[in-house]
């Protein structure tokens, strides 16, 4: 029934799905625990501006999106850390303006709208060999970073202030984290699309959070859910002839609600800190 997996495009799609599912889940753990979901959504929307710049300049939109998203992430980080405005306000400002820039730039390129839809909503079947290799490299970089800095990233996620007091460079690690987030967002665009990326980052980690009180298990479960959603979602969409990005995201949402229902702690998606 899944004879389409014999085709090269389907194999590329599967590899991309596995890598992006894992990447999103790993970054998602930090996003859920540190409360960065809105920054993730902001960076995702900024990637539209990045893609538009690439289209206009005639270069691979992935590269322009990487540069643009990292700069936007740093912009949000700097604006909020210097406490000019609150973090969510900073995101709100960058969110719409970078998207507007994208729309403006795309409008300059006359008669261009072919790929637009695929960037917004994903087109996993259109993943090229070059895309797959880019994703492999980025996944390896992020995975190595997370493994090497495991304890330090855990520390700043749990208690950034204490990390700073003891001499751990919390600021630099925070910027590294949002840089990895920007890379993850761009790698996910082809798979689920700009509009749905933030769901693929947050949902698997939020689902895993329902089931465990151990950080390591949280990582492993989140990756399993992320990869599972991507692969099974891809199969389902192929089988039923429905949109792949949306299928993947909805599948991970179903997993989230199942986990929430069987959660031994009956915790919500993000804990509210106990009063006082």
């Amino acid at each position: 029934m899944l004879e389409s997996f014999a085709f090269a495009y389907m194999q590329r799609a599967t590899v991309a799905g596995v890598l992006v599912g894992a990447l999103c889940a790993i970054i998602g753990v930090y996003v859920v625990l540190k409360g960065l979901a809105f920054i993730g959504a902001g960076i995702a929307h900024a990637s539209f501006g990045g893609v538009a710049i690439g289209v206009l300049l005639g270069i691979n939109p992935i590269w322009s999106a990487i540069v643009f998203c990292i700069l936007t992430a740093w912009g949000i980080g700097l604006t909020s850390r210097r406490s000019y405005v609150k973090e969510d306000t900073a995101v709100g400002v960058f969110f719409a303006s970078t998207m507007a820039l994208g729309i403006l730039l795309i409008g300059l390129k006359q008669g261009y709208q072919v790929d637009l839809f695929s960037y917004l909503f994903g087109s996993i079947l259109a993943v090229t060999t070059q895309d797959v290799w880019t994703t492999v490299v980025i996944t390896c970089v992020v995975l190595t970073t997370v493994l090497v800095l495991y304890k330090d990233l855990l520390f700043i996620t749990f208690d950034s202030e204490m990390a700073e007091v003891t001499g751990v460079p919390a600021g630099r690690l925070y910027f590294l984290l949002i840089t990895m987030m920007a890379l993850t967002v761009v790698m996910s665009i082809k798979v689920v699309g700009i509009v749905l990326v933030s769901a693929l980052i947050v949902t698997p980690a939020a689902a895993a959070y329902q089931l465990t009180e151990k950080f390591r298990n949280l990582m492993i479960l989140a990756v399993a859910f992320g990869v599972g959603s991507c692969v099974v979602g891809l199969m389902l969409s192929d089988l039923l002839g429905i949109a792949s990005g949306a299928t993947i995201v909805l599948l991970s949402t179903v997993i989230f609600f199942l986990c929430a229902a069987i959660s031994p702690q009956r915790r919500r998606s993000r804990p509210v800190t106990e009063e006082k």
Binding site: L149, D152, F158, T166, G167
Partner: peptide, 26 residues
């Protein structure tokens, strides 16, 4: 109350963080 008290971490892991500054990044 500055800390997320539902963070998935054990008692020993939390205490171990007190040594991370000296151990060094990475």
């Amino acid at each position: 109350f500055n800390i997320d008290l539902n963070f998935p971490i054990s008692v020993l892991e939390t205490v171990l963080m007190g040594t991370y500054g000296r151990i060094g990044v990475g």
